[in-house]
């Protein structure tokens, strides 16, 4: 491992050896969406900077990788709010108890299934198993969700944020952001002039499509080609063009991907089923500061005369990060 003595903290994983990548995206629970919406509302309103939140997470030390992504980032927000004296511990604990009360529902006393005799097709029998399950996992939200609810409630009371600040962001992450990148790429495949504009000045080209990227960052678009394959990572945290592609998938935030793709990109790409010939340059973009990256895949062969809408159906998020390549269409 290079430069061990210079490692900044648990987050500085680029170059480490790590596990194979789990390339499945396991999506988000409601409390993860809420925590994420709250954190983004707080940072984009300038109440606490993104870099302060990053620093707080980094200072968790060994606990950094013991917590999953949303819990870690959520608790970093709570910690930073306390450090900045937005609330004190007593106020916080009090609010957690108030929030928990909202979850108290009467427990329904169900009869013992084995004691119920009833008729099926005229035959009396006893059920060995319950007819239904209360919910999929049989458990409620994790403890940190109450901390997030309490933080949101206190910040609302202090008029720093509104419920709409949080909910509108949750909503946009569901219904708007994930579809923008796909529409940009479909247009670039369809319209050569737009493609040139996008590669020259992505931020303006996207703006001219009527897409207002609610982001401080600049956007750079790179085109996959016969000679170069681009792939994007953020080794230090999870920088990603969220307002263009939605939330990053699970693997993008994983320790394995962040550690490995910078020093063994070809092997990582193989794990996604993407083989790059030795003759082609692999270029890794470690997205670590104020730029965000969009990858323009080559337009699949066999799509001559296709409409923008038809083309858009061939595009998936993984293509726009560079870990997969859209397949040619066989006529």
């Amino acid at each position: 491992m290079p430069h061990d003595s210079l490692k900044m903290g648990p987050h500085d994983v680029g170059g480490e050896t790590a596990q194979p990548i789990n390339t499945a995206d396991h999506g988000m629970t409601y409390w993860e969406k809420f925590s994420n919406g709250l954190r983004i509302a707080v940072s984009s309103k300038g109440i606490i900077t993104l870099d302060e939140l990053r620093l707080t997470a980094e200072s968790f030390g060994k606990k950094y990788f013991e917590m999953e992504y949303f819990k870690r980032n959520g608790l970093a927000l709570v910690e930073r709010c306390k450090q900045r004296s937005f609330f004190d511990e007593a106020e916080f604990q009090n609010e957690i108890q108030t929030q928990k009360k909202n979850f108290e529902v009467p427990i329904v006393k169900l009869p013992d299934v084995k004691k119920i005799n009833h008729l099926h097709d005229g035959v009396e029998h006893t059920h060995e198993q319950s007819d239904f399950q209360e919910d999929e996992f049989g458990e409620g939200p994790p403890e940190y969700y109450f901390e997030m609810l309490a933080t949101a409630a206190i910040l609302r009371k202090k008029n720093l944020i509104t419920e709409d600040d949080i909910q509108s962001r949750i909503e946009k992450f569901e219904t708007v952001f994930p579809f923008r990148g796909v529409s940009v790429i479909a247009k670039a495949w369809y319209d050569a002039e737009f493609q040139n504009y996008l590669l020259k000045d992505a931020k303006s080209a996207i703006k001219d499509m009527g897409i207002h990227l609610e982001s401080f960052a600049d956007i750079i678009c790179f085109s996959q080609s016969e000679t170069t394959h681009h792939v994007v990572v953020c080794t230090l945290c999870s920088c990603y063009p969220r307002t263009l592609l939605g939330m990053p998938p699970s693997w993008y935030k994983s320790r394995s991907y962040r550690s490995r793709v910078v020093h063994e990109p070809r092997k990582v790409l193989e794990e996604f089923g993407t083989t790059i010939p030795e003759t082609k340059e692999v270029k890794v973009h470690d997205s670590n500061a104020d730029m965000r990256y969009l990858i323009l895949p080559q337009r699949p062969k066999g799509t001559d005369g296709w409409s923008e809408k038809e083309l858009s159906e061939l595009i998936s998020r993984d293509h726009l990060v560079g870990v997969r390549i859209p397949k040619d269409v066989i006529q």
Partner: peptide, 19 residues
């Protein structure tokens, strides 16, 4: 990449860019 990692296994043309 070969200038970053002494044991890099890929092509000599492979590169990495960051800010």
């Amino acid at each position: 990449q070969h200038d970053i990692w002494s044991n890099y296994l890929g092509s000599k043309n492979d590169t990495l860019e960051l800010e």
